[in-house]
Design a protein around this nucleic acid. Structure first.
Lengths: 191, 191
DNA sequence: CTCGATTGTCTAGCGGTGCTAGAATCGCCG
DNA sequence: CGGCGATTCTAGCACCGCTAGACAATCGAG
């Protein structure tokens, strides 16, 4: 039965290869450049093979996004390891978030800006999404009014997301991104 | 010379017709449904006519967005007419902004989410954009640290934008949008 | 070992997109 | 009324996401 196993392994490898290639292509040339034809050519198979792994382009986007959520979680964890959730911790988290976005623009788009088909605020939301949000909540809850920590985290996250997207689209001048972030943290951290 | 004038007038009418039709089509069926073919059919001309008015689809998007900025400006002005810039005024402005976005989703996308080719933080930024931002600044400056009102307005705007986009994309549960807005205003208004 | 069935992959193609070259038509002016 | 410039249209390009059906490789039964 090792033949079957080998085939399954090869198939799994190819599955991951598609995801990785799509991500690389998006990160270097933008998501518009990630077409089924180009993607197929890169993995050295024909287009229809893609559809034996994913329902369509959106599902590939979703798979890449899922990778992103896992990496965002570890990035956030790494930024706030220690004890007290003081102002510095919040600032570090915020910084880690925006750094993640600027370091992986295409990945960030797949996660938050493009239609990846993933359910968000839903019972069927995949674990990596919950986890990333959980890290934020874990360290931010102490600064919220005790009756609505969730609302507080959502608002803070939304503010970060707004800064990221508007800055990246050139809607906000790039010079003072750091100052805007500081201002945001100051406003959200309870005094 | 009235013939020439009539022709110019007709051409201007058609120009506006293209913009209005694109906007209507986008608002009813989404921007993906606004294709050059459909748009041409609606105005009862062939596609190439569109290219005698606009360089391409992006420029049509930009024209629609420009309309949006003018309307956003009047909406914001209407929301905060009176004297003191207290908490209620800020809340009213924030509310007016999010209401504008939910009432005109496609228009909002054209302005802030899609690539409309308009220069933003730039010396060549069109007047309507400056004006909309100016209304916000006018009423919010009093709550900022005196040395950086611009930064404050940018951050507040970014937070609003984040709330709007994440909510509309289903990334934030739709139920408590109003509460999140209140929380945001509370955090930004100086106490 | 052969042969049919199943699985997998490929070629070719559908209807759609933004955009444009060149033909055809319109309407003004002399 | 005829010619001519401006305008509009027809037809087409290269590309998109996606899929039907031909083809080949592999497996299991006799």
């Amino acid at each position: 039965m090792s033949v079957r196993e080998r085939k399954e392994r090869e198939r799994a490898n190819r599955h991951q290869l598609i995801i990785s290639t799509a991500r690389e292509l998006a990160e270097s040339d933008g998501w518009d450049a990630v077409t089924t034809r180009r993607l197929a050519e890169r993995i050295e198979f024909s287009q229809p093979v893609l559809y034996s792994h994913f329902r369509g382009k959106r599902e590939i986007l979703g798979a890449v996004a899922l990778e992103g959520f896992a990496e965002l979680t570890t990035a956030l964890r790494a930024a706030a390891p220690k004890g007290p959730d003081d102002r510095a911790t919040v600032a570090a988290l915020a910084r880690a978030y925006t750094d993640f976005a600027t370091d992986n623009p295409a990945l960030y788009d797949a996660m938050f800006s493009l239609d990846n088909g993933l359910p968000f605020a839903d019972e069927s939301t995949p674990a990596p999404l919950h986890e990333a949000f959980g890290v934020l909540r874990e360290h931010l809850a102490g600064h919220a009014r005790p009756d609505e920590p969730g609302l507080f985290v959502e608002a803070f996250w939304a503010a970060l997301h707004g800064l990221v997207t508007l800055t990246r689209a050139g809607r906000l001048p790039a010079e003072r991104v750091s100052d805007r972030l500081t201002l945001l943290v100051d406003r959200f951290v309870s005094r």
